[in-house]
Amino acid sequence: TSPLDMEHAIPREQLISTAVKFLQNPRVHQSPLATKKLFLKKKGLTDEEIELALQQSGPAPDESQSSGPS
C-alpha cells in the first residue's frame, strides 16, 4: 500500500485526537498494547504522541506496566 501523503497534511492535534478515539474503541482497547503502539507508529505517530494518546484514552489498564519518564 502506498503511504498516503495526505497523512502529513493532518495537524498533529487531530492525529492525536483520532488516536485517542481509536484507542477508546472497545475492540481496540482489548488488543495488546504493543499491537496498538505498532499500529499508531505505522500511521505516523511518534512515540511521544502515542504515549499522549494512550494517556488521554484512559489510564493504563495495569499501572505496573506504565513505565517511562513521568
Binding site: 483520532t18 488516536a19 481509536f22 475492540r27 499500529f39 500511521k43
Partner: peptide, 16 residues
C-alpha cells in the same frame, strides 16, 4: 492478524 490490521485501518480512517 491481517484482518485485525484491516479493522484497525478502517476504524482509524473513519475517525479521521
Amino acid at each position: 492478524f491481517a484482518s485485525q490490521e484491516k479493522f484497525f485501518q478502517e476504524l482509524f480512517d473513519s475517525e479521521l
